[in-house]
């Protein structure tokens, strides 16, 4: 027990190692794999995320241009972000907040071959997605 005393005495004078969490939040690291977002305007509904997802939480309807996503089945591995050919998928650095109701995300997009103006209009309404990593780093 006495061998521990010097540690205890030191802990009385050094800074606390815990945070008062909801009031003090540590800044997220910039490579963190958090919430998955789809920039539906850029999505080409190829379905490769659906094929490669290990937890099968994404369903893509190629004909109706609907992207369905179940964040509660998602394991946030980021495989879909890596392989997305249109780079429409990205991950925020914040984790998904805990909620008391199940969320199912369903996004209606448009199939390609649309005018440039429409593209810009839609982009104005949406906040720009945070890119957690450059594509060059992942090869």
């Amino acid at each position: 027990m006495f061998k521990m005393t010097h540690n205890i005495l030191r802990n009385l004078v050094v800074r606390k190692s815990t945070r008062r969490y909801p009031f003090e939040v540590r800044e997220a690291f910039d490579k963190v794999r958090g919430e998955l977002v789809n920039d539906i305007v850029r999505c080409i509904f190829c379905g490769s995320c659906e094929v490669r997802c290990p937890s099968q939480c994404i369903q893509v309807d190629r004909k109706a241009a609907v992207w369905n996503y179940d964040p509660f089945a998602c394991v946030f591995c980021g495989v879909c972000v890596d392989i997305c050919p249109a780079k429409s998928l990205s991950q925020k650095t914040q984790y998904l907040r805990s909620v008391d109701k199940r969320i199912l995300i369903s996004m209606q997009g448009e199939l390609k071959k649309k005018s440039r103006e429409k593209d810009k209009e839609a982009e104005k309404d949406k906040p720009a997605p945070v890119e957690p990593e450059g594509p060059a780093a992942t090869g």
């Binding site: 690291f29 490579k31 963190v32 794999r33 394991v75 946030f76 980021g78 957690p132």
Partner: peptide, 12 residues
Amino acid sequence: SESTTGNRVIVS
């Protein structure tokens, strides 16, 4: 772990 790989435990 979190800053270099992106996750704390299941680093993937």
